[in-house]
């Protein structure tokens, strides 16, 4: 069976979906990714869907699920490179993926994730300082 590779880049995980997702593949991606976040302690997940040209409500939900699960495991999810047609389809399906961050391309997605991580760390530091005083 095909498998979607999950690459580790420091504290981030990079998933590039190069094929059109079918249901089983998406489900296994969901499971693999959650396992991987747990194993590596990743703080951010970047999903590149620039090669995906067809999407249905199930895939939309899986992406939303992945984001929600990652959030519970303390990792932010950014979806990058969504094609216009895919975006329109998702909106028409009534799935605006409100919990998911998006970026135009991998570069901007990385930037977004990094700034989010820095912010989070700063906040954590800030609250620590606050409690110490």
């Amino acid at each position: 069976m095909e498998k979607i590779p999950i690459l580790r880049m420091g504290r981030l995980l990079l998933v590039t979906i190069q094929v059109d997702l079918y249901d089983r593949l998406a489900e296994s991606l969901e499971a693999d990714l959650v396992q991987m976040i747990n194993k590596t302690g990743a703080r951010g997940v970047l999903i590149d869907i620039s090669a995906v040209s067809i999407i249905d409500s199930f895939m939309g939900r899986i992406i939303g699920n992945i984001a929600a699960m990652s959030k519970i495991l303390d990792a932010e999810t950014v979806v990058v490179g969504m094609q216009p047609a895919v975006a329109i389809t998702l909106v028409e399906l009534g799935l605006p993926l409100s919990g998911v961050f998006s970026a135009l391309n991998v570069e901007k997605g990385m930037e977004l994730l990094r700034s989010k991580l820095t912010n989070m760390e700063r906040n954590v530091d800030g609250s620590d300082d606050g409690s110490a005083e």
């Binding site: 975006a87 329109i88 998702l90 909106v91 901007k108």
Partner: peptide, 12 residues
């Protein structure tokens, strides 16, 4: 609202 949602999905 739809247009705004779609734009956000694209990352803008």
């Amino acid at each position: 609202i739809k247009t705004v949602s779609a734009t956000r999905l694209m990352g803008a």
